[in-house]
């Protein structure tokens, strides 16, 4: 049940960063496509005891135990009701792999580096630290996720 994103806004000739955009609630986020390994339908995850609330649990990804993080909870966002239509984006960072549970995957965008701007300082917004930059594509604001900040530090997990 992988969703095929419509290729409308892709501009393959322009140099820039390729980003995978997805929805959480009604907000658009995106990730550098190079860190995305695959996209798969949401399945029931086996919950982990003593895990932070944003950890959905673990799923079986072709024989590998893959932890799944509920990105909405991680970012403290409202999320669409669990309709079973959620999607898991499998990302890899170094040796670790992780599934990110999102509401829907929407698009692959190519954004020129110049169009990415640093997010303004807003100390009150705790979620901001997860955003590395902002861009405007087709009149929508896209938040580029800082994967390093989103992944749970291993130390926290072991505690």
């Amino acid at each position: 049940m992988t969703e095929t994103p419509p290729q409308t806004t892709a501009k393959p000739d322009a140099p820039g960063v390729e980003l995978l955009s997805f929805l959480i609630g009604d907000q658009y986020f995106c990730l550098d496509i190079m860190s995305v390994r695959e996209i798969r339908g949401g399945t029931r995850a086996t919950p982990l005891p003593h895990a932070p609330a944003y950890m959905r649990g673990v799923i079986n990804l072709r024989g590998v135990v893959l932890p799944v993080m509920d990105l909405a909870r991680r970012l403290d966002l409202d999320t669409a009701a669990d309709t079973g239509r959620k999607v898991i984006i499998v990302v890899a960072r170094g040796e670790r792999s992780l599934g990110l549970l999102v509401d829907a995957v929407s698009d692959i965008l190519t954004v020129p580096e110049a169009a990415l701007q640093a997010p303004p300082e807003l100390p009150a917004d705790a979620g901001r630290s997860f955003i590395s930059s902002l861009a405007i594509v087709d009149g929508r604001m896209i938040r580029v996720l800082d994967l390093g900040a989103v992944l749970p530090p291993t130390g926290e997990v072991a505690a």
């Binding site: 982990l48 005891p49 003593h50 895990a51 673990v58 590998v64 135990v65 893959l66 932890p67 040796e95 670790r96 792999s97 992780l98 749970p152 291993t154 130390g155 926290e156 997990v157 072991a158």
Partner: peptide, 8 residues
């Protein structure tokens, strides 16, 4: 579990 997650 430890490779991708850590000790539980």
């Amino acid at each position: 579990l430890a490779d991708n997650y850590g000790r539980v």
